[in-house]
């Protein structure tokens, strides 16, 4: 029973505590309208977190999310490729898959550290976008993305529905499929997984490709949300997604966990940032909170 309690992600209790606190201290934050706004705001993070959690469950890490989103924003808004919108979106997805494949290649074949590899990828992508944007600055977002990012049906914004449409199939697949079982096995003991003939390289490669594609989707929502391209876009996401995955019950080095915990944690974090802002400690508080959570996660071992 104690083990069961310990294995429940912190995010569930954390969200409840935060909501209760806000209900007392800042009741306006928990009104339906504002909550829906926060949910909308959380959607890009929640999408990115799904990929990050998959990487961490196979004992890898994806810090290239921010670079991918920046590149997606540039491809979509700079007008560098004069193509119809659907084609542009498709190119972004293919681009994401390619980045994921390159990350996975260095991690599985060259056996480089996932932290270093994906950080390098992020830096290279950012550098390329920055230099290109001197020639052609980012412009307006494609209409279809502005629709996803900004429209609502009744009072329900579309972006959380977009997230749900991605989350449900991916989470169900990870939970029900042989692939999901292999992910658990690699997380529990990568050496044993390798030796018993589980296709380790393929699993890790798929995890990274999926993570980068999800980063692209996250970028779609962000770009639509902002309405225009930006060189700041998605900068916080790699770190914030990491924090969300940890709060969502996936521990460093043990790879345990599911998909729902990190999603709840994405909401919890976004909510806490809003709460901090309303309490007058916006950006500094946000940074301190994230740092504290990462430090805590690094010291905390899995319950067994």
């Amino acid at each position: 029973m104690a083990r069961l309690l310990l294995s429940v992600p912190i995010a569930y209790a954390g969200t409840a505590v935060l909501l209760a606190f806000a209900y007392v201290a800042r009741p306006a934050l928990v009104s339906p309208v504002l909550l829906l706004l926060i949910v909308r705001q959380a959607a890009p993070l929640a999408i990115a977190v799904l990929g990050q959690s998959l990487c961490m469950r196979v004992l890898s890490l994806d810090l290239s999310i921010g670079g991918v989103i920046l590149a997606v924003s540039y491809i979509l808004t700079s007008g560098i490729l004069r193509l119809p919108e659907p084609l542009l979106l498709l190119i972004c997805v293919l681009f994401g898959a390619a980045v994921g494949a390159v990350n996975a290649f260095f991690i599985t074949r060259i056996k480089a550290s996932s932290v270093i590899v994906t950080l390098a990828t992020a830096l290279i992508l950012s550098g390329v976008v920055f230099s290109l944007s001197q020639l052609r600055a980012p412009g307006e977002a494609p209409a279809i993305l502005r629709y996803i990012g900004q429209t609502r049906i009744g009072i329900v914004p579309i972006s959380p529905l977009f997230w749900l449409a991605i989350f449900l199939p991916v989470a169900l697949f990870l939970r029900m499929s042989v692939f999901g079982r292999y992910v658990d096995a690699i997380g529990a003991n990568p050496r044993a997984a390798l030796i018993s003939g589980i296709p380790y390289v393929r699993i890790v490669t798929i995890a990274h490709i999926l993570s980068s594609i999800l980063a692209v989707f996250s970028g779609f929502v962000l770009v639509g949300f902002v309405g225009a391209g930006s060189l700041d876009i998605g900068r916080d996401l790699p770190l914030t997604s990491l924090v969300a995955v940890i709060l969502g019950g996936v521990t460093f080095g043990s790879g345990k966990g599911g998909s729902l915990g990190p999603a709840v944690a994405a909401f919890m974090l976004t909510f806490s940032f809003n709460l901090l802002t309303s309490l007058g400690v916006g950006e500094p508080g946000k940074l301190m909170l994230q740092g504290a959570i990462i430090a805590l996660a690094a010291t905390r071992r899995s319950p067994d």
Binding site: F173, M176, S177, V178, F179, G180, R181, Y182, D184, A185, A188, N189, A192, A193, I195, S196, G197, I198, P199, R202, I203, S254, K256, S302, D304
Partner: peptide, 26 residues
């Protein structure tokens, strides 16, 4: 050899699923 942090069921099931494709239902 073993996945110590997983259950007996998860350990044994990995063997039973060996012949299935990855995307199939476990």
């Amino acid at each position: 050899g073993l996945y110590l942090s997983l259950s007996i069921e998860q350990n044994v099931a990995l063997g039973m699923l060996r012949q299935l494709a990855m995307w199939r239902r476990a």
